[in-house]
Amino acid sequence: MRALIFAAILLNTTLAAKADEWDFAAQHKQHCSVGGQDVMNVCLANAYRDTNQRLSALYEQLQVVLEDGTSLRKAQATWLRFRDQTCEYEVSGLVKDNAGLYAYAKHACMIDITEKRIRDLKEYLSWDCNGCPGRK
């Protein structure tokens, strides 16, 4: 029986750790988990602002090195709509009257998806191959 309980605890811990690997906002949520809802919301809003600034800087850095940034510009505009609509969907079950929880969840979603896009743009910056978008 003890072995079964231990196995269940181990499995639960492993699954939780795996979930955090895909939640790119996890460290921000952990950092912002101190204080009341208003304090946590401000913290997460600031974390999103910083994450979005990092994204913008990478996007500009990539645009500078491309021969023609039209495709990236179109992709980024489409991605922004995707991010916004995805996060709107993810928080659609929350009552907007509970503005504190709604704002927290929306910022967490925006951070998560933006961090993933940052990873993609970093990868694009590292590309140096035949068939990759042209560089100046």
Rank of each mutant, 00 (worst) to 15 (best):
S92V: 10
F82N: 08
Q85S: 15
W79Y: 10
D68L: 06
K96P: 09
E88P: 00
E90M: 05
Q85P: 07
E90I: 07
L80H: 14
D84M: 06
V95N: 07
Q85D: 15
E67T: 14
D97Q: 11
A75I: 07
E67G: 13
W79M: 11
G93R: 14
G69Q: 06
R73H: 08
Q76V: 04
K74W: 15
F82A: 10
G93M: 12
V95P: 05
R83Q: 06
L72A: 09
C87H: 01
G93W: 13
C87Y: 02
S71E: 12
V91T: 01
T78M: 05
F82D: 11
E90L: 04
S92W: 13
L72Y: 07
A99R: 04
Q85L: 15
A75G: 12
L80I: 13
Y89D: 07
A75N: 12
R73L: 10
Q76K: 03
E88I: 08
W79E: 12
T78I: 06
R81N: 09
T70N: 15
G93C: 07
Q76I: 01
C87T: 02
L72N: 03
A77W: 03
G93T: 10
Q85C: 13
D68Y: 05
G69E: 01
L72M: 14
T78G: 05
D97I: 03
